[in-house]
Design a protein around this nucleic acid. Sequence first.
DNA 1: CTAATTTGACCCTA
DNA 2: TAGGGTCAAATTAG
Length: 293
Amino acid sequence: MNNNNNLCSDESVSTNKKKRVIIKELVQGQEAATKLKLLLKNPFGSEGSLSSQELMANILRSFSETISIITSEISGQNGSPVAGAGNASNETKKRSQKGGRGCYNRSSTVVVHCFTRQTLLCVRDLDYWVWKEEALCVRTKSSQAWSILSNTTGDNYAWRKYGQKEILNSEFPRSYFRCSYKYDQDCGATKQVQRDEENPEMYRITYIGLHTCNASADSVDWESFLLNCEASETIEEKQYPKEETPSDVTDPTLVSLNMESHNNDAECMDMDFGVDSLQFCPHFPFAPSHHCP
DNA sequence: CTAATTTGACCCTA
DNA sequence: TAGGGTCAAATTAG
């Protein structure tokens, strides 16, 4: 009885919190859109004001955040971003009990999430992003997944590389990263990084799962990250550059900053992707939501 | 010495 | 059975 009450209460608090986040994001998006409108009237802007590209990035971020929250609510993944991810320590125990490597928990492997085709549809009008029309299927555990093209592998998160694979018919290997706090804080976020075939200077980065760790980037960090962006880094030839920690990220020349030619975001959002769990706007360079405690 | 990366093996899905 | 994702021992870096 008490447990039920507590559950209802927790659920109510969680729902209210999400509503506040949604409202906040929409208000921020609205403010950014208003500024953009004024900026279009006065292209030179005032000193200290954000550029149209930065404002556009803010607007997209707000939409992405809001859509992510709403869609995760609808799909019933509320509050537990990655099925199985929260059991990292338990899985470790299971593994050690079994005593073998690569022992998968069948019950936690539920969804094969294919999303490249959807991304292709969404960005097909962009000269800047040219996606190969090959199937990219990511084996996930009921997690959200989204993909970006960027000239840097760094972001505001700390990652630990745990694998690298040669990919069939692909010139470049794919690297696998997990959140550095996977075991400390049961964070199940992972990402895959691979040089783009057609633009070898760019990295195709696929984020899988949401961060549940306390080390996640908030919007303020993201904005400073965006505003402090510098020129492109030199890409190492032999290996991917080592992952930057949150303190030494210097080059976020973001994909969203190259979106001038894309003026059809509404179409992007309204598209019927045919994938129930699709929960992202692929234009946005970072994870659409990091709902950390 | 500790932490991070590399890399071959193992396992799962299509 | 092939291809890709993950593990963990070995190696390297700080």
